[in-house]
Design a protein around this nucleic acid. Structure first.
Lengths: 224, 224
DNA sequence: TTATTATTTTTGGCAGACCAAAAAAATAAA
DNA sequence: TTTATTTTTTTGGTCTGCCAAAAATAATAA
């Protein structure tokens, strides 16, 4: 079986549980999936019967190993397609998510294999999210949110956690794209907005935006 | 709206009516769609209400202009994807049909535009079937079935009308691929099988196979 | 033209996926 | 700990897309 609906539930549970197989609530799921909680109750009961999740009444749901495996193949498909659309077909990073939401349900292993091959088996998609390999293994990294970064330290942007076109276009406009180098000059006490130094320009970003930008600390420059 | 089911019905009606908007029966449709005739009756009633077909009770169904337009966009998507899978991703011509059956339902005009662009806006897919353009227009051609070809005349293979992997693999094995030149040496009176001359070899093909091979008569060689 | 066969339609039903509204349970606040 | 508030579940219904079996039509053969 494995309907598109099931795939979407498993994928969403995976995302909401942060990949940790931790428990997610019905309301949470309902909001992400644009259905009402009653619908989720039904669905998770069925997923439980299929042994893809463990559902405990009035408490929550978490993925089983089998469910997690399926979720990871969907995530892999999604991110491979996103990367392919961006790299091979010239789509913008703000466009790929929506199309990949459909393409991720195409069931053909060889297709994903070919796409991955053509891309040189990438480990990250255009938003900096890691791409699980065929076995579902994910490259771990010690990236942090920009909102948790230190002042006056060099960072590189490695990803984003919000994929909305509006946010991505905003970032692009300010050249806050993946790979960009930056440091925090100042944190505004009033609203926690950050004053960034990036490509010789100073840019102010809200704390909300900083929550959605993922960075990696750069090794300190050794004196030449 | 425009569910996957509707798209499949319209596409199938299109194929069965030979692109001529002629009438197709319920049984016919049911067989192609792997459902029972009763299901088709329901479906065509609904399509009629949507003004995508004209359904006359106990008689049959044909596409309206609106229905035909949708059918042609599905056919276009299908054939563009088939071509892309074969040319850009290295799939065999016996593999592409099945995958394209899923991909044809991805609703994103820009995606098809990009794929077509990358391919140089092809007019024929790997099976020799014409690809409708964005407006649904199809390149007309005066191709004929090999079974209707004359003896001792030069032809070029331009397409096939059976997309089953078994048939395509059979053709490939005998080098009866698109572009191959051949002529009919003899027609066996007993079973109508054809003795072909192709690439210096003689090949015998059944009348059933000859029904599924499309050829184009070559201009006669003028003396040099 | 009647009998036979094939096709089409009707009727009643089922499963998947959803919703609205009411009831129950859990959580948070007073 | 007793209200509120939020979350979860139950119940009754809808819509789409399908099937099985029976009845009605059409097409074909005798």
């Amino acid at each position: 079986m494995q309907s598109e609906t099931i795939e979407n539930y498993l994928k969403t549970i995976y995302h909401l549980s942060g990949g940790n197989a931790s428990v997610v609530g019905n309301k949470q799921l309902a909001d992400k999936l644009n259905v009402i909680p009653a619908t989720v109750t039904e669905a998770v009961k069925k997923l439980h019967e299929l042994k893809l999740v463990v559902y405990e009444k009035s408490y929550g749901t978490r993925l089983t190993a089998a469910g997690s495996k399926i979720a990871l193949t969907i995530v892999r498909r999604h991110r491979i397609w996103e990367t392919y659309l961006a790299k091979e077909l010239g789509f913008g990073w703000d466009e790929v998510h929506e199309i990949a939401e459909e393409l991720e349900h195409i069931k053909n292993d060889k297709l994903i294999k070919k796409l991955s091959e053509k891309l040189g088996h990438p480990h990250f998609d255009p938003h900096g999210d890691p791409i699980p390999d065929e076995k579902g293994k994910i490259r771990k990294s010690n990236f942090i949110k920009l909102s948790e970064a230190k002042v006056n330290t060099s960072y590189k942007i490695t990803g984003v956690t919000d994929h909305s076109p509006a946010f991505l276009k905003y970032l692009e406009k300010h050249q806050l794209i993946i790979g960009a180098l930056l440091s925090i000059k100042n944190v505004e006490a009033f609203d926690n907005s950050l004053l960034l130094q990036c490509r010789k320009k100073e840019i102010s970003v809200s704390s909300k935006a900083a929550e959605c930008i993922i960075v990696e600390e750069l090794p300190v420059q050794t004196a030449a």
